[in-house]
Computed example of a mutant assay.
Amino acid sequence: MTFTFAASRHGKRHAPGPEKVPAVPARRPRSVRVRRSLTGWAFVGPGTAVVVGLSLFPAVWAFLISRTRWNGIAPARDIGWTNYQRMVDDPDLLAAVRHSLALTAMFVPASLVLGVLVAVALNQRIRFIAFYRTCIFVPYVVSAATTGIIASYVFNPQFGAINDGLRRLGLPAQKFLESPSQALPTVCVVALWGSIGFTAVVYLAALQDVPKELVEAATVDGAGPWQAFRNVTLPHLRPVTLFLAVWQTITALQLFDLIYTTTRGGPLNSTQTIVYFVYEVAFRSHRFGYGAAAAYLLFAVTMLLTGLVIWYNRRRGSEAF
């Protein structure tokens, strides 16, 4: 046992006494810990079961269907990996993959650049800034089906508002959604109109977290607005940019309702993406096995592109995931 001496006010030493040892909190009984764990799972268990049931079960079932030939009525017949082998030589599927990749290549960079520009504009101290921010975000909360229906009228070659404006400017009218070469870029423009609000709001939140002291220090050192933005602000936006790049990539690859309400894959299948191809094969042609195999191809493409984006940004020092 350890003894210590304590000096009094007059310099005298008191008798040695035992040193106080902090008490160790007693461990809760096992029954209490089990009861608390069961209570927690009682709250989160039902929601977890629903989420797992609505994600894992359909995924496993779709994989089993992808190895069969089934029209939804007659009994399914197991054909092994035939559906996956058939996809390699399917020109319609290969065209759908090219259209999906082209749409992603146009949509993702444009949404990031426009999102940054809009966020910088909305980060200024001006009057009615809350009204402007609301107006930018409203198109994102509007359903894509509604956006597609409105876009089909706006881009109509005969009486659309866009062509009416072109005629007033003395420019030739365009076919837009009815042209095989213009339909996919037009769909991309409509998709950007509906998604810029999301990227702008995320970038706006990130801009407000950038330390103002660093921007002021760069300005004092002689950096102009563009140099301060490029060398100070943009590095702080890299994690957000990585997140948005992955999110927008998944959004572009899974775009369906906008295509369904505008072009339905036309004209001449020029806007038929993988998702719309799966819909056509499975629910229009009733080839559920082949449609499930194409859906797994979409999953593989999505995972591959997402992994490449994350790998590239991590090599550059961005750790958002």
Rank of each mutant, 00 (worst) to 15 (best):
A252W: 05
R316I: 02
P109A: 02
I150E: 03
G115R: 06
R314G: 14
F63C: 08
T249Q: 04
I73T: 12
Q124H: 11
L38C: 09
V215T: 12
D209M: 07
F288W: 10
N71L: 03
P211D: 11
G72R: 04
R13H: 09
V116H: 04
N123P: 05
G289V: 06
S143W: 01
L204H: 09
I150T: 12
D164Q: 12
A59P: 01
L114P: 00
L122E: 09
I126S: 13
T134L: 15
W41Y: 15
F277A: 10
V142N: 09
V88C: 00
A105P: 02
D92M: 11
I274S: 05
A144I: 08
V278E: 06
W41V: 06
Y132A: 13
A223N: 04
V220K: 03
I196K: 03
R287L: 15
T4L: 13
P25V: 10
N313D: 13
R35W: 13
T146M: 15
G53L: 07
F63N: 01
Q158T: 10
P18W: 08
A49I: 07
I136T: 14
F155E: 11
A294R: 04
Q158V: 11
Q227I: 02
G170V: 04
L244M: 15
G45W: 10
A119W: 09
V60D: 02
Q254F: 01
A7T: 13
Y279P: 00
R287K: 14
A144N: 08
D92L: 14
A191S: 14
L207Y: 07
A206Y: 06
S152E: 05
Y84T: 02
H286P: 00
N231K: 08
V44L: 15
V275N: 08
E178K: 03
R35S: 14
R28V: 06
G165T: 05
F137E: 12
L258R: 12
A218I: 04
P239Q: 09
F5D: 05
V51H: 04
F288Q: 06
F5R: 12
V52S: 10
P109N: 05
Y290D: 08
P180N: 11
W193Y: 12
R86Y: 01
A200C: 07
A300W: 03
Y296Q: 13
A161S: 12
A23M: 06
R238I: 01
R168H: 10
R133F: 02
L112C: 02
E213N: 10
F63V: 11
R13S: 08
V88L: 15
T134D: 07
S285P: 00
R314P: 05
F63E: 00
T68N: 09
